[in-house]
Every structure is written in C-alpha cells, then in structure tokens.
Simulated scan of single mutants.
Amino acid sequence: MGLLSEVLLLPLAPVRGSMWVLDQVVADAERQYYDPSAIQEQLAALEKQLEAGEIDEETFDRQEDALLDRLEASRTRQTGA
C-alpha cells in the first residue's frame, strides 16, 4: 500500500516540497524574531536613539514595551511553559 500511495501522491510532490520549504523559512524567521540576543541588541539601539534625541519618550516606551514582550515570549518559548 505504501508504494501505491506514493505513486498516487506523486503529482503532489512539488506542493509537498514547497510546503516543507515554507515551514523551514517560517521556523527560521521565528528563531530570529525570538532570539534573545537580537532583542537585547534592539533594546540597546533603541536606548541610543532616545539618548541621541532621535525619538521621543513616548515612542521609546511603546517600542521598548513591544521588545520586552517579545523577550518574555522568547523565554516562555524556551522553557516550554
């Protein structure tokens, strides 16, 4: 039955391959998005922007909250909780 199903599903091979590639791209993007070191670098850059006067306090607070939420989500993902 395994060989028969493979033959019948052969026309779907490009779709299955594309889905696998898409899954890999999404997984890598999530790893980068939730990478704690990258988030901490973004927090440091944000603080430098505030100190340089490039952004105001309200923008800083809003972006800092978003980054801290991502950092918390990253830690939650790592612990599996």
Rank of each mutant, 00 (worst) to 15 (best):
G2Q: 05
L3N: 07
L4D: 09
E6Q: 11
E6D: 13
E6W: 07
V7Y: 09
L8D: 08
L8Q: 13
L8T: 09
L9H: 07
L9V: 04
L10W: 13
L10G: 02
P11L: 08
L12G: 03
A13K: 14
A13Q: 13
P14N: 11
P14C: 08
P14W: 11
V15I: 15
V15G: 05
V15L: 15
R16N: 03
G17F: 02
G17A: 13
S18A: 13
S18T: 08
M19N: 07
M19G: 01
W20Y: 04
V21Q: 15
V26K: 12
A27M: 09
A27I: 00
A27R: 15
D28A: 14
D28G: 02
D28K: 15
D28Q: 14
D28N: 14
D28I: 00
A29K: 10
A29G: 06
A29R: 11
E30G: 00
E30I: 07
R31F: 00
Q32T: 08
Y33W: 12
D35S: 09
D35E: 13
D35Y: 07
D35V: 02
P36R: 06
S37C: 01
S37M: 07
A38T: 01
I39D: 02
I39H: 04
I39E: 01
I39Q: 02
Q40Y: 03
E41I: 01
Q42K: 14
Q42C: 03
L43H: 00
A44P: 03
A44F: 03
A44R: 11
A44N: 10
A45F: 00
L46K: 04
L46I: 04
K48C: 00
K48W: 02
Q49C: 04
L50T: 01
L50M: 08
L50A: 03
E51D: 14
E51N: 13
E51F: 10
E51T: 10
A52T: 02
D56Q: 07
D56S: 06
D56R: 07
E57T: 09
E58H: 09
E58M: 12
E58P: 00
E58C: 02
T59F: 06
R62D: 07
R62G: 02
Q63H: 12
Q63L: 11
D65S: 15
A66I: 06
A66M: 11
A66W: 05
L67G: 02
L67R: 04
L67T: 01
R70N: 10
L71P: 00
L71R: 06
E72W: 04
E72C: 00
E72V: 06
E72H: 05
A73M: 13
A73P: 00
R75G: 06
R75Q: 14
R75L: 10
T76P: 00
R77N: 05
Q78W: 01
Q78R: 15
Q78M: 13
T79M: 12
T79L: 13
G80L: 12
G80D: 10
G80E: 11
A81Y: 05
